[in-house]
Design a protein around this nucleic acid. Structure first.
Length: 402
DNA sequence: TCTGGGGTCCTAGGACCC
DNA sequence: TCTGGGGTCCTAGGACCC
């Protein structure tokens, strides 16, 4: 029996949501209707385009380009800062609304969801296009922003379909429509096929998804290894992955920061790493997880990226223990080059810590656990910065502009 | 005033074991 | 002291997503 999958994608999510926020707070213009972008803070060296209005797009402005370059394309461009708190609220509202249609819902990102509606004929009938329109229109009416709905027999097709003409549209991409609707597209329009693979494919004379579907599998494997198999399958519209409700835990927890200026002083970098350790380990404990692999990642002034990691014998969720490793990793790897961005990633996450400790060590850990627990509850109640370890007080570090 | 942040997955290569 | 091969675990780096 064919499956029925919907992919719901908020049109211009950050820009639409900011437009709503601004209108609610007395702003006269709807920024969806002027040349506008949501962009990071240039004075903090985060000046890239996060989202663009349709008019800004007409000027050739693309996501992730620098605001400097975007302004060169459109002199009258207006730039607004992101409002992540509001975005998360909107995202949650949308998710809760969509979840009323089926428990088989997967939140793919802050502004995208997959719904598996297979076998819901008795509930909603079998006119899926009408159902999609109903969902789309209800969202517009209830929340004030528009979405695209893609309908397909698997996630890949639903996702590709929602990417067709925007905004405020419903599209289908059934398997018998692959040749007419998907094959004419360029290879980089295929989901999970990015710039770098597209470039290689073009060099092999493969330009459209049709070319890719007809390409020799052995050739693809030779150049792309296992991705070659994926490309071929995807070009044929095949995908067997399931809609996975996101009660499953994270595979990794990370934090990173671009610094307002390149930092070369080790003490400063360690202070930043400590404050980042507090953040990730707090998240870790909030999710009731323990980490076995700790990584420090950084980028230097020349944009070269580094990552160095260590795998522990026993998983942990204690700030002090994690920081001890972070410090070691950093001190043993850093070449004293100026650092632009620095972060921490915890992976190999487990539900429970193995207790392969001596009794003495274990009682020590328990005391530390209790301390973390109390501190976490205070942070949850009163916010970050409300509690500071006495031993680390002097290390509390704020990145300030020079 | 050039180039964000949080994720997932894959691969090559080295260490180590039998 | 001229040296195989299969398996596992780990690390660093990169591709790709929104």
């Amino acid at each position: 029996m064919p499956r029925i999958i919907f992919h719901i994608d908020v049109n211009n999510a950050f820009l639409s949501w900011s437009a709503i926020y601004l209108l609610q707070h007395g702003y006269k213009q709807d920024i969806r209707k002027i040349p506008a972008v949501i962009g990071g803070d240039e004075s903090a060296r985060k000046g890239i385009v996060l989202a663009k209005s349709p008019i800004a797009k007409k000027y050739g402005i693309v996501t992730a380009e620098t605001l400097y370059s975007a302004r060169n394309k459109c002199k009258s461009l207006q730039v607004f800062p992101p409002n992540y708190t509001f975005y998360k609220e909107q995202s949650k509202k949308l998710y809760n609304y969509l979840a009323s249609y089926t428990p088989l819902i997967e939140q793919y990102s802050i502004d995208e969801c997959f719904l598996d509606l297979t076998g819901t004929t008795l509930l909603y009938g079998n006119d899926y296009v009408s159902l999609a329109h109903k969902i789309k229109d209800e969202i517009k009416e209830k929340f004030g922003f528009t979405v695209n709905v893609g309908i397909g027999e698997n996630k890949l097709c639903a996702k590709m379909a929602s990417d067709f003409e925007k905004p405020d549209k419903v599209h289908t991409l059934y398997l018998n429509e692959i040749e007419t609707k998907m094959w004419p597209l360029k290879v980089d329009d295929l989901f999970m096929l990015g710039k770098s693979s597209a470039k290689k494919l073009n060099e092999l004379g493969i330009y459209t998804i049709k070319d890719l579907a007809n390409a020799d599998l052995n050739l693809l494997r030779r150049y792309f290894k296992s991705s070659g198999d994926y490309f071929k399958q995807a070009a044929l519209g095949l995908d067997y992955s399931k809609v996975e409700p996101r009660n499953s835990k994270n595979k990794c927890i990370s934090v990173s920061r671009t610094l307002p200026y390149d930092v070369v002083k080790k003490e400063d970098l360690l202070k930043i790493l400590f404050s980042e350790t507090e953040e990730v380990s707090f998240t870790l404990r909030t999710q009731k997880l323990y980490t076995k692999t700790i990584a420090v990642t950084y980028r230097n002034n020349l944009f070269r990226n580094y990552s160095h990691q260590i795998t522990l014998d026993n998983e942990t969720n204690a700030t002090e223990e994690i920081y001890k490793q972070v410090k070691l990793i950093f001190e043993n790897s850093w070449q004293e080059d100026p650092i632009r961005n620095i972060g921490i990633r915890l992976s190999d996450l487990k539900d429970k810590a193995l207790s392969q400790l001596s009794l003495f060590e274990e009682s020590d850990i328990k005391v530390e656990d209790k301390v973390e627990e109390v501190m976490d509850s205070i942070i949850k109640k009163y916010g970050k910065g409300s509690v500071i370890r006495a031993s680390k007080k002097e290390e509390n570090y704020n990145i300030e502009k020079r």
